[in-house]
């Protein structure tokens, strides 16, 4: 009965308006349907098959690939590694990005210069970033001198106990990669947050100041609440970007120490290009996607709670 009542309210005019409104998203939907739906359908279909990528014959295996994946230690380890990198990105990278965005929003000298500089790392290719950090973190020696800048400085400062071969030590390699990833990525958070700060009405600040609020109160009561949506997007994109990190790791350590540096995308590549198990690789892709969607749903629920308070 209620639905009927609702339907009655839905007049021709409403229908026409809905249609007009829908036409706004139509180009995006068309593009999406063509270029996503078929590949996604195909990936899902392949994930139920055993296929080497060449044969005409694909063997239907039900959910065997998923069952195998569930027990695959390498896969879960790669998820764990990506999780660690994401943790670093969420804390270290985002705090740094926000702090720098706030600093650049103040009336300080040379802020134009800083704004320009902070965006250089994201622009650089992973090849260059990889080269440079490999050189900084190099643990080798030549004629009694350390080649890597970091070890060289530690040596000169007398901190010998800290010297290690940063990228070939299983205990430090993942942390180093995570920090370089943060360094490379903070520029994105920086400009998004900075753009967000720019859209806050300056009158709000002035009004607060007239009311006698100090900097911390302004920050807590105006900046943060106004920035919550942007911060949430930045967090969301950080999680997505960090979970899918791959090229940077490849540039820094190649296939080295995979047991300590593998991430989901590298595992998918390995299954597909290295082991030629396309069905399994697709199963990995699907379950990775499902995991990310679950994380974001949880995140979404949490953030609605946060917004309510």
């Amino acid at each position: 009965m209620t639905s009927l009542a609702q339907r009655k309210k839905f007049t021709m005019g409403d229908a026409k308006e809905s249609l007009v409104n829908f036409s706004f998203i139509l180009p995006a939907v068309i593009l999406f349907s063509i270029f996503y739906i078929y590949p996604f359908y195909d990936i899902f279909r392949l994930s139920l098959h055993e296929w080497n990528g060449i044969d005409a014959q694909k063997y239907y295996v039900h959910f065997d690939n998923f069952k195998e994946l569930f027990k695959d230690g390498n896969w879960w380890r790669s998820m764990w590694h990506a999780g660690i990198i994401t943790f670093f990105a969420l804390t270290f990278q985002n705090v740094m990005a926000f702090a720098l965005a706030l600093a650049c929003d103040q009336k300080i000298r040379m802020k134009k210069f800083y704004r320009m500089i902070f965006f250089i790392p994201p622009v650089l290719s992973e090849v260059v970033v990889g080269f440079i950090w490999m050189w900084i973190l190099n643990g080798d020696m030549q004629s009694g001198e350390y080649i890597g800048i970091l070890n060289y400085l530690l040596d000169k400062m007398g901190l010998h106990h800290l010297i290690t071969s940063w990228l070939s030590n299983p205990d430090t390699v993942l942390t180093c990669i995570a920090l370089v990833h943060c360094w490379k990525g903070f520029g994105w958070g920086f400009i998004m947050l900075f753009a967000g700060l720019q859209t806050i009405d300056a009158q709000l600040y002035e009004a607060a100041r007239v009311d006698g609020a100090n900097s911390w109160q302004i920050f807590k009561n105006i900046t943060i609440p106004m920035m919550v949506p942007v911060i949430l997007v930045v967090i969301f994109l950080t999680v997505l970007g960090s979970m899918q990190v791959f090229v940077l790791i490849k540039a820094m350590v190649g296939q080295g120490l995979q047991d300590y540096t593998s991430v989901p995308v590298s595992e998918i590549f390995e299954s597909m290009i290295g082991l030629k198990r396309f069905g399994y690789a697709c199963a990995q892709g699907v379950s990775f996607g499902v995991t990310l969607i679950t994380i974001s749903l949880v995140f979404k629920l949490l953030s609605t709670k946060v917004k309510q308070y």
């Binding site: 590949p39 392949l46 990528g53 597909m272 697709c282 969607i293």
Partner: peptide
């Protein structure tokens, strides 16, 4: 539709090169 777009970001592309090329 909105969540459809957002969800699409989460499935990694490396898995899809064969279907994409065929398409």
């Amino acid at each position: 539709f909105f969540y459809m777009f957002v969800a699409a970001m989460m499935i990694p592309l490396p898995g899809s090169f064969v279907p994409l090329y065929v398409l």
